[in-house]
Design a protein around this nucleic acid. Structure first.
Lengths: 143, 143
DNA sequence: CTTGACTCCGTACTTCGGTACGGCAGTAAG
DNA sequence: CTTACTGCCGTACCGAAGTACGGAGTCAAG
């Protein structure tokens, strides 16, 4: 019965998923991950589905979901409510597209300016610096 | 001689540029903006080029430059070193493009998943949730 | 039995770009 | 003169997503 008790210690869980131990604790404090019961004076043991849950969180983060959104997705996961999950996903996709538009505009503006800087045939000033002084054509680019 | 002393008060400067008074002070603490000399026990007066400087900062921020980068650009402005400014701009452009690639990948993944959610013809599970559990095809998307 | 690695727990600190607060002083209007 | 704004200044706080730290306790090996 003294087999290596089943379940991982927090350190092994963290290593298995590739995150910091403190990150696991942080997720617990945030209510994203349960705290397994602790045998009095003992060490908590984490089950396979805790590992799965942390991986889920990391996957969602890679898609740009915030931890608040992840919490929501996790609840939907438990309830298997695809429609609601899809709705949350759609809202997030809108936000992603908004950020994409902003970045595309920045990319376009900046790359044009840098081409002009590179040509070096400007009459007087640095086109980039001049554009920042003028402040034109770049309203509400980031928000 | 008691004309409305020339130069703006901090409040009017802030209003002119459309930022908070606290923001002006914050830029001063960060060394992005000088603190005009203060007639003992009096009120600081800001000149036209302070206004220009704050506008410059805001323009650069709209292009996604961080305040640290802005500080750098401001120094280059003073020295009129176009090549150096362009170099900084190019580095920033690289970063912008990296973020664009990440967001594009997120956009693609998420929109495909949501189409599948919308079709509702999945055998069992929610495609979005399932994908988050699987964690496949979304490595190193954000960093 | 001691050493070293690990865990537990609470608290504080980090970055970024500000925002808010509180007390004091000076200025403007009635 | 009083009232109401501003300005000045230092300090604390916000959110997001962790990271770091210190002092315990526990566990396995030697």
């Amino acid at each position: 019965m003294t087999e290596p008790q089943d379940g991982l210690s927090i350190g092994r869980l963290a290593a298995a998923v590739g995150v910091n131990v403190e990150t696991i604790r942080f997720y617990q404090r945030k209510g994203l991950l349960r705290e397994p019961p602790r045998p009095p004076g003992g060490i908590r043991r984490y089950a396979a589905n805790d590992t799965a849950r942390v991986r889920f969180i990391k996957s969602a983060q890679r898609l740009g979901f915030s931890l608040d959104e992840v919490r929501h997705l996790l609840r939907l996961d438990e309830g298997m409510q695809c429609a609601a999950a899809a709705k949350l996903g759609a809202r997030h996709l809108d936000e992603v597209r908004r950020r994409l538009r902003d970045l595309r505009r920045i990319e376009a503006t900046l790359s044009k300016l840098l081409v002009r800087c590179g040509r070096g045939d400007e009459s007087v000033a640095c086109p980039l610096i001049a554009a920042l002084h003028a402040g034109n054509k770049m309203d509400k680019t980031v928000g």
